[in-house]
Amino acid sequence: MSRDFGFSKDDKRLDVSKFSPRESVAPKEDADDLGDRAADRAGFKSREVVERVARVRKPSQPFDQAFVRAPIDVINRFKTFCNDTGMSYGEALDELMRRAKL
């Protein structure tokens, strides 16, 4: 590079004075999933690893088992109750006994 004798007043800086920070946006006005449908259509997929969370059950007391022999209608009603509420057999038994005030 040739030596600069300092005659030029041009400091070669760009004028950035017209730009200032944005005003902050409320999260309500900016939906989190904005653009995701467009991304799906254009073939842009999520690339983030989804971590598998292990389910932890900590019983307050030891578990025991009971084999139930009952008419199919009773068993069906019990299973339907479990399906509808999403409870396990153990939880459902506890819940039904609680309701029966036993």
């Binding site: 995701d36 842009f44 690339r47």
Partner: peptide
């Protein structure tokens, strides 16, 4: 964007959802 005059985002070289967001 509320702190700086210019914010740049360097995105990954994949067709990702982060890119679209």
């Amino acid at each position: 964007a509320s702190q700086a005059q210019f914010v740049f985002i360097d995105l990954e070289g994949t067709a990702s959802r982060l890119t679209s967001r």
